[in-house]
Amino acid sequence: MEHTQIRAKLNASTITQFILLGFSEIPNLQGFLFGIFTIIYLIIIIGNSFITVITRIDPALQKPMYFFLANFSTLEICYVSVTLPRILFNIATQDRHISVPSCAIQTCFFLMLGASESFLLAVMSYDRYVAICNPLHYPLIMNPTKCIRLAVGSWLGGIPVQIGQTCQIFSLHFCSSNKINHFFCDIPPILKLACGDTSINELSVYLVAILFAAVPFMLILASYSKIIATVLKLPTATGQAKAFSTCSSHLLVVFLFFGSATVTYSRPKSSHSPEIDKVFSLFYTIVTPMFNPLIYSFRNKDVIGALRKLLYRK
Rank of each mutant, 00 (worst) to 15 (best):
A214Y: 09
K179T: 13
V231C: 08
I57H: 02
I227F: 02
I6C: 02
T16D: 15
K179A: 11
S81R: 11
P188S: 04
Q106R: 00
S260H: 01
V287H: 02
L156K: 02
I228R: 06
I44C: 00
I295W: 01
N134R: 08
Y138L: 01
I276M: 08
V53W: 14
E76T: 13
C195Q: 12
G35K: 02
A8D: 13
L61T: 09
I105Q: 08
R96T: 15
H137K: 15
H97I: 10
A12W: 02
F217D: 14
I40G: 02
K314N: 06
S13E: 15
S49Q: 12
I19H: 07
P139L: 07
Q240R: 11
R308V: 09
S99T: 15
I54G: 06
H250P: 02
T236R: 13
I187S: 05
F67Y: 11
L221E: 03
N48T: 05
R267I: 15
C247V: 08
T16Y: 09
Y296W: 07
H182L: 01
F34D: 07
Y79M: 12
F183P: 10
A261V: 15
I19S: 08
L252N: 05
E202N: 14
L140W: 03
P144F: 14
P274M: 01
A261P: 03
L310H: 00
G47Y: 01
P27R: 01
I200E: 11
F109W: 13
S177T: 15
F255A: 05
Y206K: 15
L234Q: 14
T74D: 14
V254K: 00
M124C: 07
V130Q: 06
F298V: 15
T246N: 12
L61G: 10
C103G: 13
V263L: 10
P160W: 01
I6P: 04
Q94Y: 04
V303T: 08
C147M: 08
I105R: 03
I45H: 07
M65C: 03
C78E: 09
A104E: 00
C167G: 03
R96L: 11
V123L: 01
K233D: 03
L29V: 07
